[in-house]
């Protein structure tokens, strides 16, 4: 179980205006700015949960992850993971966690991937038979058989990310931290990675904590969402609750032939082209079926599609709502 209580973390950042004169001045006296990266962050995550940790850039996502991994020491507050305080018992703690930092690599650049895996096996003292089982399973699920003998430097980003994820699971960790695991991946690789994460969570009961900017990751993967902004937890709930915070409005895309329909109360045209209308509908004023029958009565409709607010818009709206 993961428990954070009132975690605070500040960074001191040297600041100066651009330009030569200011740079010279900064040689003698520096101005520092205190950045509150985390402000009384508290939450609890149970074993086997899959949690999406979202927020804009600089919100404190990675800082929280790094505190939970034992890399950073917070200014104050309590963090207990399976009974241990990560930064005090770092070595014992990290034995049981797996981490993927999407922007960095844990594989040795110039040697075949399998050499890096062997090193990880030795570092975590993974039993040979367990290592072999895990390696076989991961090789199959992530389709690594062709990649294992290739040096890391020759892998594409998607191939490398699959290897990175495998590397973080060789020692059967109880908790998996994924810091932007799908960053820079193409659609196919993203789907493969998502399916895999889902499987690991379901089959091994691994607790997964995932940070991402990709709303599709969140929609595909997580039941529970933690929204952080400016170092504060703003929302802790599931996707449906998150959706409640944003409007119910629907978007209708209508294609028609002949004359354009007239628009009644409750609908607003956001875009009109020849034979194509994009209408924003407020369902509290006019139901979707009513709107469609009104339109159909006036024009010959070729195609109608109805969409709700996308998760991306939703989160953007939330960011705005909390002004972060």
């Amino acid at each position: 179980m993961i428990k954070l209580e009132n975690i605070n973390k500040t960074f001191r950042v040297a600041k100066r205006q651009g330009g030569f004169a200011r740079a010279v001045k900064a040689l003698f006296s520096r101005e520092y700015e205190i950045i509150h990266a985390l402000n009384n962050v508290s939450f609890t995550i149970n074993d086997g949960e899959m949690v999406g940790y979202i927020g804009p850039n600089g919100a404190g996502k990675s800082t929280t992850i790094k505190i939970m991994c034992g890399i950073l020491t917070p200014d104050n507050g309590i963090c207990e993971i399976d009974g241990r305080t990560p930064w005090l018992e770092r070595v014992a703690h990290v034995q049981h966690i797996g981490v993927v930092f999407g922007q960095r690599s844990q594989l040795w650049w110039d040697v075949p991937v399998v050499d890096s895996f062997e090193l990880i096996k030795d570092i975590y003292k993974v039993d040979s038979s367990l290592y072999q089982t895990n390696l076989d399973e991961l090789t199959e699920l992530l389709d690594l058989s062709e990649l294992l003998k290739t040096p890391t430097r020759s892998l594409s980003l998607g191939q490398r990310m699959r290897c990175e994820i495998a590397a973080s699971l060789l020692h059967s960790p109880k908790i998996l931290f994924l810091d932007e695991p799908t960053i820079g991946l193409d659609a196919v690789s993203k789907i493969a990675v998502r399916q895999f994460i889902k499987k690991i969570n379901a089959e091994r009961k691994t607790t997964v904590i995932l940070t991402t900017h990709d709303m599709q990751d969140i929609e595909a993967l997580t039941e529970r969402i933690l929204l952080i902004g400016k170092g504060k937890i703003l929302l802790d709930g599931n996707l449906a609750e998150l959706k409640k915070h944003s409007s119910e409005r629907k978007t209708l895309i209508v294609e028609y032939t002949g004359k354009a329909p007239t628009i009644s109360e409750g609908m607003t045209v956001s875009e009109a082209k020849d034979g194509r209308l994009i209408i924003v509908l407020d369902p509290t004023q006019l139901s979707v079926s009513e709107a469609i029958s009104q339109l159909a009565a006036q024009s010959d409709l070729i195609d109608v599609s109805v969409t709700g607010v996308s998760s991306e818009e939703m989160v953007a709206a939330l960011y705005e709502e909390y002004s972060i």
């Binding site: 790094k66 991994c69 034992g70 890399i71 770092r90 070595v91 014992a92 990290v94 034995q95 966690i97 981490v99 930092f101 960095r104 690599s105 844990q106 570092i123 975590y124």
Partner: peptide
């Protein structure tokens, strides 16, 4: 460059 993050998540001194 910050790659130290990956070295600190290993159970090693």
């Amino acid at each position: 460059g910050g790659a130290i993050a990956y070295e600190l998540i290993r159970p090693m001194d």
